[in-house]
Write a protein that binds this DNA or RNA. Structure first.
Lengths: 103, 103
DNA sequence: ACCGATTACGAGTGGCGTAATTATT
DNA sequence: AATAATTACGCCACTCGTAATCGGT
């Protein structure tokens, strides 16, 4: 599994469509389709019900959506924490903590 | 950033050594070195102080370690949730919820 | 017939391992 | 000299985009 899988999963779940998800993620529909398929295989659970023309979350999809978001959020939190933590690698002085750089 | 980066980061932090981390992760030292380097670049923070022969977490490293573990845990939680959620893709009956398969 | 998802194919990117290099104890 | 981290090189796997295919409304 990969963060990309989770992002794609959440995108499709929120958009309710592979096409829209692809559009949001700026990738091709085929990439979305494969990513979801791979994730489903990896988790051993069908995330979406696309038997009809309509894409809907399965029960498993529903249950996993929160976990997926949590994981994504955790990574995002890490990034934010990195902004505040320690000093900048390339900044001998490291005066700016975040956004102190002018304009 | 990637889950792999975080796993490597935590491994090095816990082992206190690139070599041991590589051993734990079953990959070459060079891979660990590059992964950490890439992660440091990505986060803009030096995670380890390896000026001497000894590898130690920097302040930023310390602060980010928890976040990294949290992200990893979140993903792990997702996997566990997948075990319990919905039905198995390939199991028409889906009698076993987890570990029901005999020996 | 149109819209949307899936599959096939080729190209580009990235990670890993091995080997060589540099530094520290 | 030995151990450990970094860099170079080549290979393999993975992902993406485009195009063709299949299915449903």
């Amino acid at each position: 599994m990969d963060l990309r899988h989770l992002s794609t999963f959440v995108a499709v779940a929120e958009e309710g469509s592979f096409s829209r998800a692809a559009d949001r993620l700026r990738i091709a529909q085929s990439a979305v389709s494969r990513t979801i398929r791979d994730l489903e295989r990896d988790l051993g659970r069908q995330l979406f019900d696309r038997s009809t023309h309509h894409v809907a979350l399965t029960q498993a999809g529903h249950e996993l959506l929160d976990s997926a978001r949590a994981a994504l959020t955790a990574v995002d939190t890490l990034r934010v924490a990195a902004e505040d933590a320690g000093e900048c690698i390339r900044c001998p002085r490291d005066g700016q903590k975040k956004g102190t750089e002018d304009t």
